[in-house]
Amino acid sequence: MPHNFNANRRDKIPKQRHRVTNWAEYNEGLRRRGDLTVWISEDALALWSAPRRTTRGGQPHYSDLAIELCLTLGLVFKQPLRQTQGLMRSIARLLGVGIAVPDFSTLSRRGNGLTLRPKPKSRCDKPVQMVVDSTGLKIFGEGDWLEQKHKAKRKRRTWRKLHLGLDLVSGEIVCSDLTKDAVGDPTALPGLLDQVDGPMDRFLVDGAYDGKPTSDLLAARFGSTIEVTIPPPRNAIPSLSAAYNPTARDRAIAQIKADGRMAWQKSSGYNQRSRGETQMGRWKTVIGPKLMARTFENQKTEARIGVQVLNQMNALGRPSFERTA
């Protein structure tokens, strides 16, 4: 069937045009993303060695901060562990500091269940307005080009599912989790909400989260006044109490039936969920669409470091837009 067969019945949405209003500051922020002084400070070098343990067992040579810094540099510059060791060794030589650099096997072993630094408190004191989305990250498998061009036999592909919670107010990733591909989005939601420290007054997700368990969980965590925006499916049926005590889902079903789904999306602000999808695209562009670690625990550490990297880069400078058309 031609792709434009139903073109006459589709909604025609004109493309919006925007202009960056703080181009000078944003341009400088983009330059600073490549500045090594952003990642290595005098405080980090002072805390390079691990404190001596008072219990029985071997003495660690490197602190968790040192391992985290090496893994962060490897993630930013997309280097395997051996090349990360060489990169850190050359940086130490250029800085003229006499520090021992962990080898690749130490980075791999210590990356399993690594305790990262506590997340700094958000600079925004307003309640969180969170958008949650998920995407798949590859682990191994033949590339699409190899399969298509050379007719290579498709192997069993394996991927992990990355869940991110983006605050629409601050533009910061406030919660994240890496799960196996069989874990559904609603199943991972309680673990994400446990990472949110302050109050939340708005929650936007796609239709995969539709259902009473999600609304009950949000009401129990953040109160009944939280604004939950979840699109109901096309065959959704109102609840039995919709006539005298309608829920937010009942009101959404009634509005969609009366005005159409596009009108509901515009009036409810559901279109802002696209910022979560944009964040996923930013992840795959900056961090990459594939995980480099091989074990699941190391992959979870890699994902947590990736969240810190994106938040740090966004803090250096974010664009401000104004609509022109």
Rank of each mutant, 00 (worst) to 15 (best):
T55S: 15
L116W: 08
A220N: 09
G288W: 00
D144C: 15
S176G: 06
C70N: 03
L69I: 14
R52G: 06
G34K: 13
A50P: 04
R17P: 13
V169R: 13
A243G: 07
Q129S: 11
M200W: 07
F5P: 00
D43W: 12
A258N: 07
L116K: 07
G141P: 03
L162C: 12
R157T: 12
R304T: 05
P319W: 02
G317C: 10
T106D: 02
I67V: 10
L94F: 12
K151C: 07
G74L: 01
C70W: 00
L218E: 02
I256M: 11
W48Q: 04
D167N: 05
A258F: 09
T225Y: 09
G57W: 10
T295Q: 06
L116T: 04
W159A: 12
L30D: 09
V286N: 02
M292Q: 11
K119N: 02
H150T: 10
V97Q: 02
F5G: 06
S224G: 08
G288A: 12
L162W: 05
V228K: 05
E297T: 15
G34W: 09
V228Y: 02
N4I: 07
F140I: 10
S170Q: 04
V131M: 04
P127T: 02
L178V: 09
L168N: 01
G288R: 06
D259H: 11
C124W: 08
R251P: 04
E28G: 13
G269S: 03
D194R: 08
L193F: 00
A258E: 14
T84C: 03
Y244D: 08
A303P: 06
L316S: 08
I256S: 11
Q59M: 08
L36H: 01
S176M: 06
P232Y: 08
T247I: 00
R10C: 10
L114I: 03
E147F: 01
P14Y: 02
V76A: 01
Q85S: 02
L189K: 11
L95N: 10
P231C: 01
M313L: 12
W145I: 11
A188V: 10
L162F: 04
P232L: 11
V20E: 01
A182E: 15
K126L: 14
T229I: 15
A152V: 06
P233S: 04
D250M: 05
A219P: 05
G113A: 14
K138N: 12
A293C: 06
E42L: 14
F77A: 00
S267P: 04
R294E: 09
R234M: 11
S108Y: 04
T84R: 02
D35A: 07
K257W: 06
L94A: 13
G191M: 14
M292D: 07
P238R: 03
W159P: 00
